[in-house]
């Protein structure tokens, strides 16, 4: 959206070019292009099994194999890989990616506080983690009382909040949120999305994958459809301001 107050210089945060990825003999993502610029909130909408999660995993280097270029902040993080899913993920994360995966992927034994700390493992974020924690807690109010509780004992909605909070703790320029409302009661799911939309992005960008268009419609900067491993719609629009 072309808002005048955002007339500051915008960068391309994520530039995906000709990305194909898959698992073994299965090719899930077909020659996909995607551009995301800073300060932007993008929704990716598509049915189950059309490659939303695989796209995110490919950006994080977690798929079985991938080809094509992925530029994150101008650094090439996509490489032609054919093995070792997850082998370079931590390097991509240090470049400024925060992936909030589908299914919570939490550390059962750590307390909520340690968990939030663990989101800020990158060196710069670690030094300012207390301010970041305050910001995250301001968004997810219910977590304030649970700081000393092991995450394994929380309910599903609280776990999702912790998982998303962990992602937001990172000093990232690109947040990938995979199905934030999945498996939650509609009300809680809606609240989680509200909270995500309330996050101040500043210089970074956020991509949210959702099955439910209604939750995102009109509240993100653009919505891209995903069908059978390809993006439909304004996938590679140029920046609002050059």
């Amino acid at each position: 959206m072309n808002k005048p107050e955002h007339a500051v210089q915008r960068r391309i945060v994520l530039d995906v070019n000709g990305l194909s990825a898959g698992w073994g003999p299965v090719r899930v993502i077909h020659d996909l292009d995607l551009k995301v610029s800073s300060g932007e909130r993008v929704g990716i909408v598509g049915l189950n099994g059309h490659g939303k999660s695989t796209l995110f995993q490919a950006i994080a280097g977690l798929t079985g194999w991938q080809r094509g270029s992925i530029l994150l902040e101008g650094h090439q993080v996509g490489r032609t890989r054919s093995q070792g899913p997850g082998r370079y993920t931590h390097l991509v994360v240090r470049r400024g990616l925060a992936l909030i995966p589908q299914g919570d992927e939490i550390f059962h034994g750590l307390t909520v506080e340690e968990h939030l700390d663990s989101g800020a493992f990158t060196r710069r974020a670690w030094s300012e983690r207390s301010e970041r924690k305050k910001k995250v807690l301001a968004i997810f109010q219910p977590l304030q009382k649970l700081m000393k509780v092991p995450v394994g004992r929380l309910s599903g909605g609280e776990r999702r909040m912790v998982a998303i909070g962990r992602g937001l703790m990172a000093d990232a320029s690109l947040f990938l949120v995979d199905e934030p409302s999945l498996g939650l009661a509609p009300k809680i799911g809606k609240a989680v999305i509200e909270a995500l939309l309330a996050v101040e992005l500043g210089d970074s960008a956020m991509v949210i994958a959702e099955q439910n268009v209604g939750l995102l419609e009109g509240r993100v900067d653009r919505i891209i459809g995903m069908h059978a491993g390809k993006l439909k719609g304004e996938a590679s629009v140029l920046l609002p301001h050059a």
Partner: peptide, 10 residues
């Protein structure tokens, strides 16, 4: 087989 199918599918 893995290499072949990867190459083919890509």
């Amino acid at each position: 087989a893995k290499k072949q199918s990867e190459n083919r599918s890509s």
